[in-house]
Design a protein around this nucleic acid. Structure first.
Lengths: 337, 337
DNA sequence: CTTGGCACTCTACCGGCGAGAGTGCCAGGC
DNA sequence: GCCTGGCACTCTCGCCGGTAGAGTGCCAAG
C-alpha cells in the first residue's frame, strides 16, 4: 500500500510536470489525481521520494521536479503504452506511402517523426554493411575512367569514380561488370572482403591490376568509409520551450555531428525493443540534458535505426509509440521495394 | 566633404555594431575612428542619418543601430572586399580536396562555409535540369522490374525502381540501355523531353509499351519531381547571440523547408555575382530578421547556388568573400570530376 | 499511518531610486 | 556656414526593500 502510493505520486509528478513544465506541489497532486489522501500525506511520500533521489525541488518552497532517476523509474515501471490513434496510423501510412525512393523514404520518415512527437527526429540510412548487394554497375566514362555504382537491396545507391592505370576497352568493362556481379550480387556487404579476396588470382592476367584497383575502391570507400548516413529534422522543435534548454547551442552542435548521432542510434544492444536514454545516461556530452528514444528498423530490426531527441521532460509513452510505429512502417517499405 | 563624412560615420556605426552588438554612440565613433571631429559634430551627422532612415535608436539615450536601409548602403557603397587569408584559402582547398563523391563535396562545402562565416550555410545540389546526362543504366532486378539509374556530369546519381507490365529478357534490357543512352547521353536534362519524344515510334514494336513507361518515369520523377535538393549546416551558429534572434524558431522552421531554401538560392537574376538580401528585402516571412548572401557556382555559375544565412547584423565583407571563394572551389571540383 | 495546523523559507513581483550613457539644443568661435 | 563645448533632459539598467504567494517540514492529535 505504502510503496504503491508512492509510485502513484511519482507518476503524477512526472505526468503533471511533462504537461505543465512547472514544479508540481503536494496540493495539486492530492486534488487532481484523486488519490484519496490529503496533501500532507502526499508530502510525506514526496519527502521519501526525494530522499531516494527520484525527485528534487529547484529551491525550497517550490514544487518537485523528477530527476533522471525518476524518469527512468517512470519509463521502466509506470508508463503504459499509448497506442496511436487510427487517424495517426492512417497519416503515417499515407505520408510514407508516397515515397519514390530511399532518400524520399528517409526524408519523409524524419519529417513524420518530428511532427508526431514534436521533437527532433533522427533516421539512419540502411546500414551498408548489413545490406546485401543487388547489383554492381561499371560505367565506362572515358578510356581510363570508370564509375562504380553499387545498388543494395535496401535501395541505397553508392558510386565512385575510379581512375585506372591503363585504358580499357568496352568489352573488358562488360567482363568486369559480370565478374563483380557474380561475386557480389546477393551477398551481404559485410562479406565483400571475403568474396573478393581471391578475385584477382582467378581472373585473366590482363585484368588483374584493374581488378585490384577496383577491389580496393569497393572495400575502402564503398564499404568502410561511406558506411553510415543519417537524416535530421524538426530542430525547430528544440525551441518550443526555451526554458527546457538553458543552452540550445550544445544540443544543436551535437546533432550536427553525424558521428555522434550514429553513436546514439547504433549502440543499441537489442535493436528489437525501444531504447530510452535519459539525461545523464547519455554518452554524449552535449546531450546530457536530453533524452533519446530509439529503435532499429527493417527485418530483424538490424538494417538501421531511428529515433527522437528531446528534453528529459518529454512525453515518453507518446514518443515510444510513435518511434515504434514509424520503425515498423519504414521496415515494411524497405522490405517491399 | 559633408556627405562624405556622413557616410564615414555610417560605416563606423555598422562596423562597430557588427563587432560589439551594442548600439554605438557618438563619443565612441569620434574617439575610435579618428575622424578628426568632435562628438557633437558626429551627433549632427547621426541625426541626419536617422532622418534619412539609415539608422535608428532603440530608445532615447541609447546609441544608434543600422536599419536594413543602412546595411544596404553599407554593402553597396561602403564595404571593401575582404580577401581571404592564405591560411583560409589553403584550408578550403584541403577541406574540399578530400571529397570522394558529390554528396561528400556538398556536405564538406556546407560545413566549410558554416565554419568560415560562423553562420548557417546552405548549398544546393547541382540542378538536374542544367546538368547533362553522362550515362543511363537499366538494371534488371527481376523479370518485370528494372531500376533506372541516371548519372549526370555533375556527379548526381538518381534512381527509380520501375514496375513493368510484362516480363523482359536480359537482352531486351540491354537494348533498352543502349537506346536510352544513345538518346540521352551528352544531352542536357532540360532537353530530355524533346530527345525522347519520338522514341517509342522509332523503336521495334515489341519494345514500345515498355519504352513508354520508362519515358514517363524518366520525365516525371527523375526530371521534374526530384529536381532540386539542398544541404544545410551550422544551425548551431544561430544561437551565438540569443540577442540577435528574439525568436530562433521561425528561422529554424523556414530553414527546414527545402522549398523555401531553394527559392532563396534560386531567385538570383544574375548568378555570377554575389547577391545580398537584407532583412525585410527577404521574400520569406520567417527570415525577415536575417540576411542572406548567395551566389551561383559551376561553369557560368549556372549549375547550382550556395550561400549563408545570418543575422542582419552580420560581417558582410567576410561573408561575401567566403561565399565567393567556396563557390569558386566547388565549381572547380565539379568541373573536374 | 494519516491529517490539519502552523511557522518558515524562498521566489517572483513591484515601485522607487540613483548612476550612467547618450542625446538634442544652443550659443559661441573659426 | 560649419564645428564645438556645455548643459539639461531622458531613458535604461541595476539595486534595494517590502510584500504576496506558494510550498514545504514538522508536530501533535486522531
Amino acid at each position: 500500500m505504502l510503496e504503491e502510493r508512492k509510485l502513484e505520486v511519482l507518476r503524477a509528478i512526472v505526468e503533471d510536470f511533462v504537461a505543465t513544465n512547472e514544479p508540481v506541489g503536494s496540493k495539486h497532486i492530492a486534488e487532481r489525481h484523486h488519490l484519496g489522501v490529503s496533501p500532507a500525506t502526499v508530502r510525506n511520500d514526496m519527502s521519501a521520494l526525494e530522499d531516494e533521489g527520484y525527485i528534487v525541488q529547484p529551491h525550497t518552497s517550490a514544487g518537485r521536479v523528477p530527476t533522471d532517476k525518476g524518469y527512468r523509474l517512470f519509463v521502466d515501471q509506470l508508463s503504459t503504452v499509448k497506442p496511436l490513434s487510427a487517424a495517426e496510423r492512417r497519416a503515417i501510412e499515407r505520408f510514407l506511402g508516397g515515397a519514390v525512393d530511399l532518400d524520399d523514404v528517409v526524408r519523409r520518415s524524419v519529417r513524420l517523426l518530428a511532427q508526431l512527437t514534436r521533437q527532433v527526429a533522427v533516421v539512419q540510412y540502411p546500414s551498408l554493411s548489413r545490406s546485401t548487394v543487388r547489383h554492381v554497375e561499371v560505367v565506362h566514362l572515358s578510356p581510363n575512367r570508370v564509375m562504380l555504382v553499387m545498388i543494395t537491396d535496401t535501395g541505397r545507391v553508392e558510386q565512385r569514380v575510379v581512375e585506372l592505370q591503363m585504358p580499357l576497352k568496352d568489352d573488358v568493362v562488360t567482363d568486369l561488370r559480370t565478374l563483380l556481379n557474380m561475386r557480389l550480387a546477393g551477398r551481404p556487404l559485410s562479406d565483400a572482403a571475403a568474396a573478393l579476396s581471391d578475385l584477382p588470382d582467378a581472373a585473366p592476367p590482363q585484368l588483374r591490376p584493374v581488378l585490384t584497383t577496383l577491389m580496393t575502391v569497393i572495400l575502402e570507400t564503398l564499404v568502410e568509409k561511406a558506411e553510415e548516413r543519417v537524416a535530421l529534422g524538426g530542430t525547430a522543435n528544440l525551441t518550443q520551450n526555451a526554458l527546457d534548454f538553458p543552452l540550445i547551442r550544445p544540443v544543436l552542435e551535437a546533432l550536427e555531428e553525424q558521428v555522434v548521432l550514429l553513436k546514439l542510434l547504433g549502440e543499441a544492444n537489442d535493436p528489437t525493443t525501444v531504447r530510452v536514454r535519459i539525461g545523464e545516461e547519455n554518452p554524449v556530452e552535449g546531450l546530457r540534458s536530453t533524452s533519446i528514444v530509439s529503435i532499429g528498423y527493417g527485418p530483424g530490426q538490424g538494417i538501421g535505426s531511428l529515433g527522437v531527441v528531446g528534453p528529459t521532460r518529454m512525453d515518453y509513452p507518446g514518443s515510444i509509440a510513435a518511434v515504434r510505429a514509424v520503425a515498423r512502417y519504414v521496415g515494411e517499405m524497405l522490405g517491399s521495394s
